[in-house]
């Protein structure tokens, strides 16, 4: 057989490269969600609805467990920024360009509590939804299957960059992620408002945000 597995090798490598940035966020009475290492010094991005009321526990890929501090949350974009007392983490980069309909994406997360799951799809549509405040929120819809527990995890493109933050499942077949541009904006604002609190931990690395 001439097929030498190059293609599957690339996908395997991509997943290996992205996986260290995927965390478990336990912060809700009903099971856990997913989170993304957003910078090397302990910033974790997840969905606001994953965080719930308590201070969430963040579980890294190497099984280290941290009680996190809530840096910021915004129900209008369904995002929350947490901080854990860790360094030398492997962050993901937000996609450098806006996603294109048709491009390949992979959703990483912990659906139904199943750790470190990968599902494959393409960007199906670039849409806007209205949030509770009536603002337009840009979202990325994909045909990668998502389930509860995927929330807060990354939707990465073929380069391993974050195209969206997996957020919700509207109806059976519709997998929705919050556009990474929204996340970049949210983190930027969150850090600007938190300069007094813990400047060192929240310093803004230029290459990430």
């Amino acid at each position: 057989m001439t097929f030498n597995g190059t293609f599957t090798q690339v996908i395997h490598e991509l997943v290996q490269q992205v996986m260290p940035s995927l965390v478990v966020v336990r912060g809700h009475r009903y099971g856990a969600g997913s989170g993304i290492v957003w910078d090397a010094n302990g910033l974790i991005l997840t969905n606001n609805h994953v965080v719930g009321r308590r201070m969430p526990i963040v579980l890294l890929q190497d099984d280290r467990e941290y009680e996190s501090k809530l840096v910021a949350r915004d129900p209008n974009v369904d995002l929350a920024l947490l901080s854990i007392d860790a360094t030398d983490l492997t962050p993901l980069k937000p996609a450098s360009a806006s996603p294109r309909v048709g491009e390949m994406v992979f959703a990483l997360g912990h659906p139904w509590g199943q750790r470190n799951t990968v599902t494959r799809g393409i960007v199906s549509a670039l849409l806007t939804v209205q949030n509770r405040r009536g603002d337009k929120l840009p979202i990325v819809r994909s045909d990668a299957p998502l389930a509860p527990g995927n929330s807060g995890g990354p939707l990465v493109n073929a380069s391993g960059e974050v195209a969206g933050i997996n957020a919700m499942i509207v109806g059976g077949d519709q997998s929705v992620s919050i556009a990474s541009a929204v996340a970049v904006d949210f983190v930027k604002k969150a850090l600007a408002q938190n300069t007094s609190a813990n400047k060192k931990a929240y310093a803004t690395p230029n290459d990430v945000i």
Binding site: T6, F7, I11, R100, E103
Partner: peptide
């Protein structure tokens, strides 16, 4: 990578 090429090709096709 071949994956990025396929991804680009699909987006181009769409």
């Amino acid at each position: 990578t071949v994956l990025m090429e396929l991804s680009d090709a699909l987006a181009d096709a769409a």
